[in-house]
Design a protein around this nucleic acid. Structure first.
Lengths: 127, 127
DNA sequence: CATAACAGTATCCTTTTCGACACTATGAGC
DNA sequence: GCTCATAGTGTCGAAAAGGATACTGTTATG
């Protein structure tokens, strides 16, 4: 498996886990998909505003990769100033349970305060 | 957010998604967790056998990172030959829904054949 | 005596990813 | 004529991740 993670694959139990990860891997793909799931359709700069610290170049790159993977569609309107809409494809939409599971775990387990990340105490669900 | 992905965090909607990803990020963490979820407890070499192409060094590294993140426990038995057991902590166990969502999506959407990965056609769930 | 199993380390090197920064084109508004 | 907004590209370099390979120490087994 000496391949970049983005092209990782192999036949072994657990492969489906890895191959799914390979789709949402990349520093921003998870959040991009999440925001598209909330908003439906977003323009380039709308996404930028929702991802305060990603650079233009990185956002473009991640969006292109997601498009290539078939998870989102890119619609260019030939107007000036340019307008480009991003939206989930059905395949991207099918990732909703995955993204929502990620979000749920984060909500329950991680505190995002300021710029560091702390684990919340475990809840005792048997009580 | 100019930080290694593994230490990524920030305050913005969607952060929980990213912070969860930061826990299972790393080329092998997903599968490791998955196998521990199936097996309960595994020794070092049992894991190696389940991850055919990971090197010893990488496996060690990923395991240490998972341990540091509080997702698994490492139990050393002072015997010869050495014996070390790896098992999920409650926190690691709490990732089960996430890992299973990843696996489910992979099962439904990806074909792992030989050494390349192909997308399955989308199923029409409304039919 | 040689070998194998266990659970690793150490060293070195390559690939990949990420980020900073500068640059493009067009038209509208002032 | 200058500036702004839009949606990008191009180039460069640093940092992180990952991989290859060799090595350690102990005991049981043949």
């Amino acid at each position: 498996m000496s391949r970049p993670r983005a092209k990782l694959t192999n036949t072994f139990p657990g492969c489906p886990v890895e191959s799914t990860l390979s789709f949402i891997d990349g520093k921003w793909k998870g959040v991009i998909l999440y925001h598209l799931m909330l908003a439906g359709t977003l323009r380039f700069n709308e996404l930028r505003r929702r991802l305060p610290s990603v650079t233009q170049r990185m956002l473009t790159k991640q969006l292109r990769e997601l498009e290539e993977a078939g998870l989102l569609s890119r619609t260019v309107f030939p107007v000036v100033p340019p307008r480009v809409d991003y939206a989930l494809t059905p395949r991207g939409e099918s990732l909703r349970p995955v993204i929502m599971a990620l979000k749920a775990w984060g909500d329950e387990n991680v505190l995002c305060d300021g710029d560091r990340m702390t684990l919340k105490p475990l809840e005792n669900r048997s009580a």
